[in-house]
Design a protein around this nucleic acid. Structure first.
Lengths: 340, 340
DNA sequence: TCTGTCGGGACTTTTTATGTCCCGGTTATA
DNA sequence: TATAACCGGGACATAAAAAGTCCCGACAGA
């Protein structure tokens, strides 16, 4: 049934809105019957005429009876409505979860894709696609987009497509080296995104293990400074969220920092910051680029993470995330988050 | 899914017709790509303008790509179409038709593919694919498979693929020479099938116009006798069904036999037997190999034929076909058959 | 280089949906 | 029993969407 709805969503986009409308009408009639056209229209927030067209249709389908005292559900109408009850719960399920999550985490927007990234690899692609689409909505005029690394972000990059009109887009890594694997490193993602979106990009290679002097002189390089100032002026930030321990292990994290992370009970990680369950910063990787406090400056912040296993991490980070953050996640994570 | 569709049929009837239309468009594009708007419109029996609106929609949904050389299915389009395949079977009631037809003709199984072989050439390929799949289900252990000729059987051969484990398969022609064109002759099909399925085969070349003595001595050849005994021990028979007159004309049928066929009101033909509307044998081509009575010995008999024009032929043959016969046909023929 | 097919722009016509107003009948109520 | 409120539905103007029609320049294949 899910797949049928998915296909229909694609092939007949206004299908669902019409179904919803007719469902509402039937529901209201059931509860207000016998009811007249005008009062029903007011209750449903429909104009009299549109309601009338719908009513004519429902009458043709023999789902309602129309008499001089008003409209009432027919027997068949009752049966159909009963079946619809269950269908709409399924159809609206995701929307409801989005609303609930948005309220619970007090975010700007929540987008949920069906499935579980932990179990089905393609769900991650769906996350990526959803994120890519959401990003595009922000692309009006000139934009500097700061992105982080991670496998989910890599999927996002993969799913980007050039926009009809080539906008003025510049991709930059959100922060300097975090010790990540080259493959899903922010720099890699940045270049991939730019390639896919047919846009510009700048990368930032910060030497990892060098003397303090070398580092400082490196930071004075004009080209580096230019990139950093670009990053600081980014108006869109797109980042993943990771499990704290998993991220720490994946990165070349020293034993003393590891101790801080474990003893601080860190559970979530986002762009180099480690958070405990209360959303407190337990540790931050010192590097250049966007800092947690800078996020409020950005016009839009999009966080992408999915899979049941990531629920805790998402919750921890969202405690301190900017209120306008857009969270893109999957069904499994959303369910887990809503569980409490 | 069943109940969801039932509800939708009632609540949004015209959405289903739209879905059907878009399904058809996608299907035609898949099989004709790259294809232009005008020729597609003709094939689909749509006016250019309506097709254009639909195409614009599908393009917006990224289900098709449009280039100067024509339209083609996008990757997503392929995925959606695949899912639609199953959905539309349900919507169009193909599954129901299969059950009805099975009962009406009292057969072992009926498989219907969508479309009309007479109108869309690729439907024949679909028939072939369906048949190939069905055949594979029978391939457990050692099998001798007797096949007939014909263009539909040629498609079946084309669609065969080697099985994961190479089974012990032997293809043989079902009967001796029937006077067919070399191209779609049983021997040709046999070798093609064996090649595609990575199996063994034996052909049977019977001299057509020779003296009785030559013929008899030929039949005493050990190699020929061996092939004939193989044929007789076939446990799977796959054959086409043809229109009686068309088949008789295609084969080098003499005028006196032609008279028998026409005066006997033959309508159907299968492996050299001609049947009238009551299923009586009007004429049989005398040749070696499997006879009508032998069919009951075979573990499984699969008959393949499609196209509205073949409906009468199918019905006539099915009157005498073994009760366990598997019929593989297309939507158009099935509709015609069910019409009565 | 020519020819036929390609997509798509532009315009008119047709169809459909919606907005608006009103009428005659029914019903609850004063 | 008179009356006001509410009922569905007819009628018609208007807005919006779909379909019909024609044409153009691009491009591939002969």
């Amino acid at each position: 049934m899910r797949s049928l709805l998915d296909v229909q969503r694609r092939l007949l986009p206004d299908f669902l809105t019409v179904m919803q409308k007719r469902y509402d009408i039937l529901r209201y009639i059931k509860n207000m019957q016998p009811v007249g056209r005008r009062s029903l229209a007011i209750s449903l927030n429909l104009t009299e005429r549109t309601l009338r067209s719908e009513v004519d249709f429902l009458k043709d389908q023999k789902l309602i009876h129309v008499s001089s005292s008003g409209m009432l559900l027919s027997e068949e109408g009752e049966i159909i409505l009963e079946k619809l009850e269950g269908i709409m719960r399924e159809v609206m399920g995701i929307d409801l979860m989005e609303q609930d999550l948005k309220r619970q985490l007090s975010l700007g927007e929540v987008i949920i894709v069906t499935g579980d990234s932990d179990q089905s690899p393609w769900v991650k692609s769906e996350l990526g696609k959803a994120c890519a689409n959401r990003m595009k909505q922000e692309w009006t005029g000139k934009n500097i987009i700061a992105v982080t690394g991670g496998s989910t972000m890599a999927e996002v990059a993969e799913m980007l497509t050039p926009d009809h009109e080539s906008k003025d887009l510049m991709f930059v890594p959100a922060r300097g080296g975090l010790g990540e694997d080259v493959h899903n490193q922010a720099n890699m993602i940045v270049s991939k995104m730019a390639e896919k979106a047919n846009a510009f990009y700048k990368v930032l290679y910060i030497p990892d293990q060098v003397s303090k002097e070398a580092y400082l002189s490196f930071m004075k390089e004009p080209t580096i400074k230019e990139v950093i100032s670009l990053i600081k002026s980014a108006n869109i930030v797109v980042h993943g969220i990771g499990d704290a321990l998993a991220m720490a292990q994946r990165r070349k994290t020293g034993p003393e920092v590891m101790k801080v992370i474990t003893e601080g009970n860190a559970v979530g990680e986002a762009f180099g910051y480690y958070f405990n369950e209360n959303g407190d910063v337990v540790h931050k990787v010192k590097t250049v680029g966007i800092q947690l406090a800078d996020l409020d400056q950005a016009r839009s912040v999009i966080a992408v993470a999915g899979g049941k296993s990531k629920a805790k991490a998402i919750r921890s980070y969202m405690k301190t995330a900017p209120a306008s953050t857009v969270l893109i996640t999957d069904e499994a994570a959303a369910k887990e988050l809503l569980k409490g």
